[in-house]
Design a binder for these strands. Structure first.
Lengths: 237, 237
DNA sequence: ACCTGAACACCGTTCAAGT
DNA sequence: ACCTGAACACCGTTCAAGT
């Protein structure tokens, strides 16, 4: 009886519910805490029950990526290729930024699911529709690379700035000592850090506008693509 | 006595030996099989012994990256910035390709070790020595991003081609059916795949020269950097 | 003071035993 | 035929007990 009631209350598990729960759980507790066991527990289900809807953890992660792909806006219609590509990449960026776990997961995928292939196909379509040759489109897609997903690995670690909230306030002397050490050991990094800090009134190593940097590199590439296209560039001679 | 002999035979463990062994083990068995326990076993040591030389697994991975950085050639002297940057990136690429586990490891590092900072500093130095402003150098470094390591995520999966060796020979009909499905579902991808297969006599989806693609994107960026530099580009107005 | 075996708190996945 | 508890073969790391 109680069991019956529970069974009725419990929405029957399906692939979509599993994936949705996985996305939400990863959003909340982070990728490193997303385990099959924990996910099962969250769904009020025995771990083994998940394996009915997902072959293994890898397939779960594949499915989670597909869910994110579904959150990316479709291409804006009736725009020149450059605008279309640009906007779609930036839309992907918005979706990806909502789910911090997505970047590392995408980077480690080895299977390309139909949803991901479809996403890539739409980019290829934008270039071809813009008059790009198949040859140029091919290489341009490679050059775009994972930037297609709206991210690039941030090599300057501003996670230091991110964690700064709960870091104890640092003494002025300690800060000066750190700066001195940096100037000695990494003189060139020091120079550009100082220059950046001067422009925006911000602390050393914390003055990077990720969005600006992303668009800077994206536009550099798009301009490069445009130039090659105008020149009728080909890879063979 | 036997114990004494063993102790004498056994080179005393130190950080370097641990890191070297970890690199070798990862090369041999892959990243997913590199565990503290397995590494200890390989060194003929109880797992806990590793924790004397490395705080935890994260620090082990940091150290492994440092080892790779040490394998990258120093900058070639007396060359224009573009050549210097280009050659150093390609040298990094050679080192990284020797260690397939390095890309994912670098991508997931959150700590920047001194060795990595030094590596970054040398790139900044090349741009500054080439007459780039601090401002432009800053953004250019961001745009270079993880390409500085000589890799980019390959979004076209040619791991299919890699695993093809042990895949059973596929019938002509199956291949045709696959092509038909691809043409229907991903018409644009199909177009560029066919064009690429036509150029080089290669199978669909297997005809990408990674090295060419890498240099294509790298040069596109370097040319873009050069153009901005010549224009005295600045980020503020 | 140093070293380490055993233990803790987890994993993903298999499988045989139950309904 | 379906479902699942227990078990397997691992993890990284802690800690107290031994030398």
């Amino acid at each position: 009886m109680t069991q019956l009631a529970e069974a009725a209350r419990r929405v029957p598990l399906n692939r979509d519910r599993v994936l949705q729960a996985a996305v939400t759980l990863a959003d909340e507790v982070g990728l490193e805490s997303l385990s099959m066991r924990r996910l099962a527990q969250e769904l009020g289900v025995v771990p083994m029950a998940l394996y009915k809807h997902v072959a293994n953890k890898e397939e779960l992660l594949d499915g989670m990526v597909d869910t994110i792909v579904g959150e990316i806006d479709p291409p804006v219609p009736d725009a020149p290729w450059k605008t279309m590509v640009r906007l779609r990449v930036l839309s992907a960026r918005v979706a990806l930024l909502r789910h911090p776990w997505a970047r590392p997961v995408i980077e480690t995928r080895t299977n390309t699911t139909p949803a991901v292939l479809e996403y890539m196909d739409s980019f290829v379509g934008m270039f071809l529709a813009g008059g790009f040759s198949e040859d140029l489109t091919h290489h341009v897609m490679h050059a775009l690379g994972s930037r297609m997903w709206g991210f690039t690995q941030e090599v300057f670690d501003d996670s230091a700035g991110k964690g700064a909230k709960d870091q104890p306030r640092i003494t002025a002397e300690a800060q000066a000592a750190m700066a001195r050490h940096m100037e000695e050991s990494y003189p060139n990094l020091f120079r550009i850090a100082v220059a950046a800090a001067h422009d925006e009134e911000s602390v050393v190593g914390n003055g990077c506008d990720d969005q600006f940097e992303f668009e800077f590199a994206l536009d550099l590439l798009l301009d490069g693509f445009e130039r090659l296209h105008q020149r009728n560039w080909t890879s063979h001679g």
